[in-house]
Amino acid sequence: MSVIQKEDTRATFSPTANIVASELEVMRSALQQLLADGVTELEMDLSNVKMIDSMGLGMIVATHNSLKKSTGIFTVVHASKELYDLFRSMRLTQHFSVSSD
């Protein structure tokens, strides 16, 4: 489902499946565990993600909000052009850093 690399308070979360409703339970629980373990700098690597549905966006926004509350940093990297456009059209790029390939 996802590859996780963690070092102290920094982690990279790389989903290996699309971020859609059917995949969310496992992804959400992994993200919550990272935050519970004290991660304050979280990078989401979308190299292997082609699609994010509205529930998936909700999970991403909730992760960002949780980190923001604890003055942490959330970033999205390696988004495809279509996914970058999706983040931009919803103005999410104004709330956290999103970089495209």
Binding site: K50, M51, S54, E82
Partner: peptide, 15 residues
């Protein structure tokens, strides 16, 4: 709503 333009469009190509 997005259901109209994204049906069967798994690449999320809204454009």
């Amino acid at each position: 709503t997005d259901g109209l333009i994204e049906q069967n469009n798994l690449n999320c190509n809204r454009h």
